[in-house]
């Protein structure tokens, strides 16, 4: 294969929090009737993760499975595994009315980590990120400043963010502004009973 580069080629920044574009990530969109056993099976097999409920994301050793809408799932897997997994999915789906397609190159993915991660994200997203409200395991499609994004938490201090590839630089720049030195808010931290 020829030279492949992610949107920002693994750019990173340290401020209030650590921001990393984490490189190429395999992503497969699966649209279909999520109540069908075939669709469920194809999704869980491809991701190795349990079938997620509404707005949930489940993880496995090699990937994750996210509920994106009532008829859409996102399968995360290693970038190099996409074509294999997609081929298997297509085969298993057979004549089922569904759409499975590689979207890995259409997206960029970031990690935002640190104690102030909730506050940094709250500067850009109109979402209640209180620790008792937004927890690891939930995925939220929303806006990051002026662009569409999907966010979830890997652990209590780490967000993952997916946006379109063309606006990766914008997302990165906006996150850097939100994480600029001296801009701590102390809102979610202050409310954390711990």
């Amino acid at each position: 294969m020829s030279e492949t580069i992610s949107a920002l080629n693994n750019a990173g920044f340290s401020g209030l929090v650590r921001i990393d574009e984490t490189g190429l990530q395999g992503m497969i969109t699966l649209r279909g009737d999520l109540s069908l056993a075939t669709v469920k099976k194809v999704a869980t097999t491809a991701s190795g993760a349990a079938f997620p409920g509404q707005r949930q994301i489940t993880v496995s050793d090699t990937g994750a499975l996210a509920w994106m809408s009532p008829d859409e799932l996102l399968i995360l897997c290693p970038y190099e595994d996409v074509s294999d997994r997609l081929a298997k999915m297509t085969k298993s789906l057979g004549n089922t009315n569904a759409l499975a397609v590689d979207v890995s190159d259409a997206r960029a993915i970031f990690a935002i980590s640190g104690e102030d991660a909730r506050d940094v994200m709250a500067k850009l997203c109109p979402v209640d990120l209180h620790p008792e409200v937004f927890k690891p395991g939930e995925i939220r499609r929303t806006r990051l400043a002026q662009i569409a994004a999907a966010i979830w938490m890997e652990d209590d201090d780490t967000f993952r963010l997916i946006c379109f590839r063309s606006v990766a630089q914008y997302a990165y720049d906006a996150l850097k502004v939100a994480a600029a030195a001296g801009s701590a808010v102390g809102f979610h931290a202050a409310q954390d009973p711990a």
Binding site: I5, A7, K123, L124, A145, Q146, I147, F164, R165, S166, V167, A168, Q169, Y170, A171, D173, A174, V177, A178
Partner: peptide, 15 residues
């Protein structure tokens, strides 16, 4: 807010 300079609006860039 943050919408100034490079983040004034989301410019889209091709590969």
């Amino acid at each position: 807010g943050e919408a100034r300079g490079s983040v004034f609006q989301p410019l889209r860039r091709t590969p």
